[in-house]
């Protein structure tokens, strides 16, 4: 028997799975949109700069054989030994907990720039081009939608912080051998913990700011205002005017830093110039409370802002 099948409409028989899967395609599309931008890769390369410095530094720390380098002249040996120690002391490149903490701290600026870009593309575009009704008219709730966007933001954060930090950890393990992993396994947890703190707080914050401002340029201005201006204010209040250390809580990035330090079990210190010196800092729990409050406020705001009511006009 022959068979004719015209190019007509065909029914589809299959089972639809639940809404829990929907954040994945949302975040995949979001990643695609950001990865297509050249600016993103430029910023990412910039972000890799610190990583390369650390990568090289750690390599040097393990590999440098001062006598062979400097011959037998004791003065030259002394010079090189001092230099290496200085690098170690000032930049903490010995694969200790400070290494990772400082590395992630230094990534801060790039992370913020990347997130300003991502926020504008991920959320701002959805408002501008009316994609929000497209998403929310599907069988999912706004929380699935936000989860999808959040996953994408978290990936950007981790691509710049946790991931390179883990590579550095692997490098140290290669250099030092199995003992490094055995002795410093807690660092792995610490890195992941710091990464989680960053993802959660920056993710909610950038989503909230992006859905508040929506347009690219104002978004970047607000974002810069919150993070960079916050830091400037905190520094001038605490370091300049000598006010209570709690004033530093307005600096969000610093709060994450405190929590991250706690994860990695390092005494919180702050960079100043070339050296890491101890500066007055609020308590870790205070920073945690502030972060939790800010994230909570962001979630409440998002709940109100991403309204299904906007869909059918």
């Amino acid at each position: 028997m022959g068979r004719v099948s015209l190019l007509g409409y065909r029914p589809w028989q299959g089972t639809l799975h639940g809404a829990w899967m929907t954040p994945w395609p949302i975040s995949r599309v979001a990643l695609g949109m950001v990865f297509r931008r050249k600016l993103f890769w430029l910023l990412y390369l910039l972000g890799l700069f610190h990583f390369l410095v650390y990568f090289g530094g750690i390599y040097l720390f393990y590999q440098i054989d001062i006598p062979s380098l400097a011959g037998s002249n004791p003065q030259v040996i002394r010079f090189w030994t001092d230099t290496v120690r200085a690098i170690q002391e000032q930049l903490y490149m010995a694969g200790t907990k400070e290494t990772y903490r400082n590395f992630i701290w230094l990534q801060g600026y790039v992370v913020m720039a990347v997130l300003a870009l991502a926020g504008a593309i991920l959320i701002g575009n959805d408002y501008q081009y009316g994609s929000l009704p497209f998403y929310l008219s599907k069988p999912l709730t706004r929380w699935h939608y936000l989860a999808g966007k959040f996953l994408a933001v978290a990936l950007f954060v981790n691509m710049l912080t946790t991931l390179p930090a883990l590579v550095l950890f692997a490098e140290c393990a290669l250099m030092e051998g199995w003992s490094y992993i055995e002795n410093r396994a807690d660092l792995l947890l610490g890195i992941l913990g710091y990464g989680a703190v960053l993802s959660v707080s920056l993710g909610t914050l950038v989503l909230a700011v992006a859905s508040w401002v929506r347009k690219t340029v104002p978004l970047i201005m607000v974002w810069v205002g919150i993070l960079f201006f916050g830091r400037a204010v905190a520094d001038s209040l605490v370091d300049g005017l000598g006010l209570d250390a709690r004033w530093r809580l307005v600096d969000m990035w610093n709060n994450m830093y405190l929590l991250g330090s706690w994860c990695l079990d390092v005494a919180p210190q702050l960079e100043s110039g070339r050296r890491f010196i101890t500066r007055p800092q609020p308590e870790v729990w205070e920073a945690a409370v502030v972060l939790a409050a800010v994230c909570g406020a962001c979630l409440v705001y998002l709940d109100r802002r991403i309204q299904a009511v906007e869909i059918v006009r």
Binding site: M33, G130, S131, P133, F134, S137, I311, V312, R313
Partner: peptide, 16 residues
């Protein structure tokens, strides 16, 4: 919403 296919009046596209 799983039972309904919704075609909006507005553009509702995902750019890119």
């Amino acid at each position: 919403r799983r039972l309904i296919g919704y075609m909006s009046e507005a553009d509702a596209l995902v750019p890119g």
